[in-house]
Design a binder for these strands. Structure first.
Lengths: 264, 264
DNA sequence: CTTCTGAGG
DNA sequence: CCTCTGAAG
């Protein structure tokens, strides 16, 4: 049994003050993949940096206060790798891998993009380079008889069922045809969208609701946080839940943890 | 009877959310001089921008979010003047005058300064230019048979009794020998420190306590907010109080209102 | 420690 | 609307 959670914490320091610590203490997960930690190690309190019972790997961005990913695991990783061999992105706090026995687990924070700005070009460059990494990772894992799962905020809703208001968002970053097509390619190249497989019916389950307006109260969300696994692991997923906060005031991030249990 | 309050609000928008509005509704003052409003008119809610029963004059800084002074008066001013004829400082949100019948009332926010930086030079330039304005103001007022009072955050503690920890602060901006000497010159050139006249015994009353550490709880404060008046007005002051908040959590600024009643 | 800003989301 | 930053206080 292996339970994996992935969550964009939207600032680990802020999240820690609003309920993340209690959530971590109560979770049954074995591994937590985090995105947007937005902190360096020495900016975190000990209870967040080195919680009792966890091994923690951090990959902060070289730009202070931006991005940052982390993986917390109850077991000590066999190895830890920051980045995916990209000159542009390896110090940007967007990718971290650990190996546990028989499985490679990654925390991914894909750029959010913004149509009509250089940040959309950056997202496209990231997708291209990262797509190549995904192919290599799959090949290497197959020859080593390992499974792979990439957990994270992919910042793309794949299909119409993956966001509340798809019609209005066809020109929005995160639901552009080229972004959706890229994700389709990923899902047709030996990687499975685990939550969608266990929950074939939409709409949702959403994992992100904007802080603006009444998006959370209206459940006007997007499903942009995924666990993307090789078939041998994906086929063993038994349960997937999005841990939506019970109310607006009890949220500690604009994203909710996406938690999957694997019979592995 | 004329009651004047002066207070550095440390951000009028923040203060409004923390109790300024209630304080304004309950005050018996006829005129409120404010400093560090840190907002332009259209960034303020109507209840702050145009409270019922008040005439409001604002002099924001041209640098967004910085400085800014204001004068709220129950009576409509005969005239309103921004700045004191300084090319460098007139758009910096540091000085505003209004005329009421027989009296000119100013709101002053003197630069705080920082030893060893250009900001201390700026403070010195301001003191020099403003000293000249004070002389001219006094002359013009005398010939027009008007009184003058400059209310505000002068960012200088005059004497040892004017701050808790004078020994440790002899090299700190706000208690430098040259700053204190300049203020002595002001007080010996036809202007009176009204609160000190009514309260000749120190220490205090302090009007500012740093937000850092436990300065407020320990009453480790500075008296840097003054009402500085021509003798004809100063001699009619009957009561002066510093409206220190009852507890740390009930403060809406790091400064307290300094309120003086004049038999005028 | 707090209030602003502006970038980023 | 929220979380960072950095300047200013």
């Amino acid at each position: 049994m292996l339970t994996l959670s992935t969550v964009n914490v939207n600032g680990l320091r802020a999240a820690a003050k609003k309920g993340f610590v209690e959530w971590l203490a109560g979770t049954g997960a074995d591994v937590i993949c985090m995105q947007e930690t937005r902190a360096e190690a020495d900016q975190l309190t000990a209870e967040v940096r080195e919680p009792e019972g966890w091994h923690t790997a951090l990959a902060p961005s070289s730009a202070k206060g931006r991005a940052g990913v982390a993986i917390y695991s109850r077991a000590e990783p066999e190895s830890v790798r920051v980045g995916f061999g990209s000159a542009e992105f390896d110090d940007s706090g967007r990718y971290l891998e650990i190996d546990l026995p028989g499985v490679t687990i990654a925390s991914l924070y894909l750029p959010s993009g913004e149509v009509g700005t250089p940040r959309q070009d950056e997202k496209e460059r990231f997708m291209k380079e990262f797509g190549e990494h995904l192919a290599g990772l799959r090949e290497r894992a197959a020859s080593a008889d390992r499974e792979v799962v990439i957990c994270g905020d992919w910042n793309i809703a794949h299909r119409e069922a993956d966001l509340k208001n798809w019609k209005a968002n066809q020109k929005s970053a995160g639901f552009l045809p080229e972004e959706r097509a890229w994700l389709t390619d990923v899902f047709e190249s030996g990687y499975t969208d685990v939550v969608r497989t266990l929950h074939p019916e939409g709409p949702g389950p959403y994992s992100w609701w904007s802080y603006r307006g009444k998006a959370f109260d209206n459940d006007s969300g997007w499903r942009i946080d995924y666990q993307v696994a090789t078939p041998g692991l994906a086929g063993r997923a038994t349960e997937a839940v999005v841990e939506r906060a019970p109310s607006y005031d009890q949220r500690w991030s604009d994203h909710a943890p996406v938690t999957v249990t694997y019979d592995f």
